[in-house]
Amino acid sequence: MQTSNNQALTQLNTQASTQVSDSLLLPQVATATIELIINKALALNNNKLVSFSAINQKTLTLKLAELSFPLSFTVNSTASATGIIVRTHVESSDCTINTSIKTLKKLKAKQSLTLLIKQDELDVNGDIKLAQQFANIAQSLAIDWQSELARHLGDVPTHKLLHFGNKITKSVSAAGKKIEADIGEYLVHEKRLVVTTSQIASFNQQTKDIASQVDSLSERIDKLFSDIAEK
């Protein structure tokens, strides 16, 4: 009973938050921002081999568990320009992916797509090739951030900024590798030597058993001494 009440309450909360976000046009703010970023990245792309012709007018829809609205990406490629239009609602999509941001990160880490589908973390409806083509294009974009930044900041500040950025990245990367190595060492060698919680609990139990045995033995000895003394 309580479970069904909780479910109804959760449903009401979700409906209320959806209404608020719709009224404030938050999905439209999100799609406008995402569209702007994607199209800016496409405009800055230097890899001229990237082709959208095969997926022109195709729509990929992403339904993320964390978002109350879907994100649909439609490719519009003409002779003069290519752009992606992002919408929150389409009546038909060539490929729909139901997943979560957490799973998308796993995909980025090259975890097997099939494995994630088997684990019900990813559900693909429609043309899976389209999803792969979108992913391939995203990975093949080549953006010269240095030139782009230099246009706004100037050559010298850009060089210094990127030099500093590279140093930071290297330091962070080195620290990360060190942590990774330490964790590896721990897992391979030290973890086997470390006493586990269950082992400690078992040891405590054994200690208690011995203590009680010693107590009962002590009682028996005392009893024997008293018997001998009486005789």
């Binding site: 046009l25 439209q28 799609t31 406008a32 929150t88 609602h89 009546e91």
Partner: peptide, 18 residues
């Protein structure tokens, strides 16, 4: 600038297809 969002909402609601 909100008129852009109103228009975007209209596009989303139109269900337009190729």
């Amino acid at each position: 600038g909100i008129h852009r969002l109103w228009k975007r909402f209209t596009i989303d609601a139109s269900g337009v297809r190729p």
